[in-house]
Amino acid sequence: MLKVNQLQTYIEQFHILQGVEFEVPEGQVTVILGRNGAGKTTTMRSIMGLTPAKSGEILFQGKNIMALPPYVTAKKGIGYVPEDQDIFGTLTVEENMRVAMRKEDKATLERQEWILSLFPDLKAAWKRKGGNLSGGQKQMLSIGRALVNETPLLLIDEPSKGLAPIMVKKVMEALQIIKNDTTVLLVEQNFMMASRIGDYFYILDEGRTVYQGEMEQLRKDEELRKKYLGIS
């Protein structure tokens, strides 16, 4: 569904991505792992066009989307859940969802109902302002907002970051359901979460893809985890 070849991205004079490569097959959860500063978030932002790549190739459903502005990329069916959720704090939960809706037709409203069944906490906070939500509710809203339109591919950047364990569990349960009909590219530092949801993984280090394999392999290989992720 998504193929990234030799992605090179600069932020000002810093060469952040120096040849990232990976593939996201349809119907799977592909996880990008790596230490802090490895280039995971920049990879997500480059795919969305928020931090445009200088060279390389980003193929989505066979078409190159690299030079496209972010709104066109999103319209092609890529949902994005940023690292800091980026909820609109002065808008209510309802308004946050409405801003994201490209159409307000029956299908979209049905998707919204499905999202609310997935995240009952959002339904309870429907009229509350985004800025007054808990970290977990913000994460749920950010995921819900990204899914409210037809979204063949969902990019999620560190959904467990800063959340209480109970919220991590809720988000993880929701992602288990979401992955049944949406292809997911997940960046995650929480290995427990990544290993439970993910099917395949790539490890980034200093802006390059340095390792890849089945998630099962990483679960079993303590040496590999120690070497690339610093965890055992």
Binding site: Y71, F88, L91, E95, A100, R102, R145
Partner: peptide, 15 residues
């Protein structure tokens, strides 16, 4: 209103 808060995210939502 959303754009006043965060233009980048508005774009990432397809606007």
């Amino acid at each position: 209103r959303a754009g006043v808060e965060n233009k980048e995210m508005v774009q990432a939502l397809g606007i």
